[in-house]
Nucleic acid binder design. Structure first.
Lengths: 193, 193
DNA sequence: TTTTTTCTTGATTGACGAGTCAATAAAGAA
DNA sequence: TTCTTTATTGACTCGTCAATCAAGAAAAAA
C-alpha cells in the first residue's frame, strides 16, 4: 500500500480535516484522533507528519491565512485605481469561501490560540499588518491624513462582522457584511476629520 | 471554621477567579482545580457550589454581561438626548473596567463557548440584541431610516475593536478604541444613505 | 447535650487523550 | 536478492482532570 510521496497529500488532508473539525465543534478542544479519523488515517500518522497537535493547528492557521491572502491578491488584479482596490480588498474578506461557517469558526479560534501561542500571535499579526498597510496604501491618495484612522476602523469592522457571523445562523450573511463595510468605506471617503 | 452564609462569597470568588484564570491563560482550557486554588478553596468545593465546570463558565459569563449592562445603564443616567446617549453607550464599552485584558479575554472566549453551548449563545444573543436596540432607539430620531444599518456597523466595530484589543499589548488601547467608534458615530450621523 | 445543618477537603475513581513504539508492508536502491 | 527508505497502524504509557464520596469540624437548633 505505501505509495510514495504521501506526505503532502496527508498534510493537506489533515489541515482540511482540522478546519472542518474546528468548524463542527466550534472549539480547539478537539482530539488528534478525531482529526485523523476525519482525514482517513490513524492518529499515529498525524503525529508522524506533524509532530504534535500544536503544529497541526499552526499549519491549519497558515493555510487559512494563505488562502485569504491569495484571494485578496486575486481580487486586486482586476482593480486599477485606489477606490476599486479598496473595494476589492473588502469584498475578498466576505467571499463564500472565506466566509463559510467552518472558516469563520477557525478564525475565531485562531484569535484565541494567539492569546497563548506566540507563533499563532505572530501569524495573526502578520495578517493584520498586511491588511492595514493594504488599506492605508490605497486610502492615502484619497484622504491623505485620515487614512490611518480610517484603515483601523475598516479593519476593525471587518473583524467584528466576522465575530458576529458566528452567532447568526443565516447563510447569506456575507452579502450584508460586504454592504456594511462598503458603506463605512464610502463614509470615510466622504467625511472630514 | 465553617462560618455560615459562605455560599454567595464562594460563588463570587469563583466567578472572579474564573475570569482571572481565563485572562491569565487566554483559554477556556483551564482546570477547575486552578480556578478553585486561585479562589482559595478546594476543587471539591467549587463542584459543591456550582455542580460542574459548565455552570462555572456560565456564571462567569453572566457576571461579565451584568457588569457591562450596569455600566451602560449608569452612563445613560447622565445623558438626556439621543446623541449623548449614543456616546454614553459607546464609552461604556471601553471603560477601564470593561476593557481590561482579562475581561476582553473572557469575552473572546465566551464567543467561542457560544459556538458549542446553547446557553452561552443565548446569553450573548441577549447582549447583542440589547446593544442593537439601544443603538437603534437613539439613532432613529437622528437618522431615521438609516438607523438599523448604522447600529449594525457601530456594534460590529465595537466587537471588532475588542477582538483586536487582545493582540495589541498596549495598555491605553481603550482611548483609541473609543475615538474610533465615536468617529464612526459622527460619520453615520453626518452621512447620507 | 444531642442532633442537624452547613462547610470543607483529601483521596479516589474513571475516563480520556497526547505522544511513543515496535512491528508490518511496500517500493525503490544496490 | 538484500538493504534501505517511506508509509502505516494497533497497542501501550503516562499524565491529567472532572466528578464523587466519605469523613471531619464548626455552628445552630432541639
Amino acid at each position: 500500500m505505501p505509495k510514495l510521496g504521501m506526505e503532502p497529500i496527508r498534510r493537506a488532508a489533515l489541515v482540511k480535516a482540522t478546519i472542518d473539525e474546528i468548524g463542527a465543534s466550534g472549539t480547539l478542544d478537539i482530539t488528534v484522533s478525531k482529526i485523523a479519523k476525519r482525514a482517513g488515517m490513524s492518529s499515529a500518522l498525524a503525529h508522524h507528519y506533524f509532530g504534535g497537535k500544536d503544529q497541526i493547528f499552526l499549519a491549519a492557521m497558515r493555510h487559512t491565512l494563505t488562502v485569504y491572502g491569495a484571494e485578496v491578491r486575486g481580487a486586486l488584479i482586476m482593480a486599477d485605481n485606489p477606490e476599486s482596490r479598496l473595494e476589492a480588498i473588502i469584498r475578498a474578506g466576505f467571499t463564500i469561501s472565506n466566509f463559510r461557517r467552518e472558516v469563520v469558526a477557525a478564525w475565531l479560534n485562531f484569535y484565541v490560540l494567539a492569546q497563548s501561542s506566540p507563533q499563532a500571535r505572530r501569524l495573526l499579526t502578520v495578517y493584520q499588518s498586511r491588511l492595514r498597510s493594504n488599506l492605508i496604501y490605497n486610502l492615502r491618495p484619497l484622504i491623505a491624513d485620515r487614512a490611518a484612522g480610517a484603515a483601523e476602523r475598516i479593519a476593525g469592522l471587518i473583524d467584528g462582522l466576522y465575530l458576529r457571523r458566528g452567532l447568526d445562523q443565516s447563510d447569506d450573511a456575507g452579502h450584508d457584511a460586504t454592504k456594511h463595510v462598503l458603506a463605512l468605506l464610502r463614509a470615510e471617503l466622504r467625511g472630514q476629520s
